[in-house]
């Protein structure tokens, strides 16, 4: 068995460490996500899933335990090295899109390339290719305020994919969308997973949405209380394929 993409060993996260109001959010998480998996992390608000996402996304450091991303202990890395990991090993998709308001769709997709010293050539072509992949090439020159929610999220996914990351980390990606556009965004994730074999970690409070993923990890009060394969996954995928094909016709 090859090294999992994500390996967490006894991760503990405390806030206000050493102060009277010290708060322990994660109580020793052990987790492995293998390459090509599509997993969801589900939990109520306050369950610690945002903290999980911050640690997985190298946005925050754990208080104790070890986190290996592609076999590398990211906690040992310098801030600059962690920036580089965020830049080209993790593709973020946020609930509120987080596009740069003054830049058009193409420029937004290009931002991660700007911070990637190994990718200084043909950036525009590459960004255009990503927009084509998410079906947004004809909106390349539109600014975020000229795009609908679903379109914004597709641009954000194009941006997340541009440096060919090890994982796509999606935080409530459909949370700000109506159910129809939400489905379209989920279709896009399925396509990335099925066609390109991307490893995707979906963070959500919705059990319904979690049903669309291969494996569901349930978090409660800082502990993993459920970690099981989704038997229904194949059916969901087939059903969605049929639906989306019908929808497009």
């Amino acid at each position: 068995m090859s090294e999992p993409v994500i390996r967490m060993e006894n991760i503990i996260k405390r806030y206000y460490e050493g102060k009277p109001n010290e708060l322990q959010i994660l109580n020793g998480i052990n987790l492995e996500v293998n390459e090509g998996e599509f997993v969801s992390i589900v939990g109520e608000s306050g369950s610690g899933k945002s903290t999980m996402m911050n640690i997985i996304g190298v946005l925050d450091r754990q208080s104790e335990g070890k986190y290996f991303l592609e076999g590398k202990d990211v906690n040992l890395m310098s801030d600059d090295e962690r920036s580089a990991i965020r830049n080209n090993r993790i593709g973020f998709v946020f609930q509120n899109f987080n596009l740069l308001p003054r830049a058009n769709a193409l420029k937004n997709v290009m931002v991660p390339l700007m911070y990637n010293p190994n990718h200084q050539k043909n950036r525009q072509e590459k960004a255009m290719e990503m927009l084509r992949m998410v079906g947004m090439e004809d909106r390349a020159t539109h600014r975020p305020n000229e795009l609908s929610g679903g379109q914004k999220q597709r641009v954000a996914i194009a941006r997340a994919m541009i440096n060919d990351p090890a994982i796509i980390l999606a935080d409530e990606p459909t949370g700000a969308l109506d159910s129809k556009t939400g489905h379209m965004v989920m279709d896009l994730f399925h396509r990335l997973h099925e066609e390109q074999g991307k490893t995707i970690v979906l963070i959500t409070h919705s059990k319904e949405l979690a049903q669309e993923t291969q494996r569901i990890i349930t978090l409660s009060d800082g502990n993993i209380v459920g970690n099981k394969e989704n038997q229904n996954y194949r059916n969901v995928v087939e059903e969605r394929k049929a639906l989306s094909m019908g929808g497009e016709a």
């Binding site: 920036s83 830049n87 080209n88 308001p101």
Partner: peptide
């Protein structure tokens, strides 16, 4: 601030 956060999340180093 948000924009700075997004840029950092997308890999902008402090010096950038």
């Amino acid at each position: 601030t948000r924009e700075i956060g997004v840029r950092m999340a997308l890999g902008a180093k402090a010096k950038v």
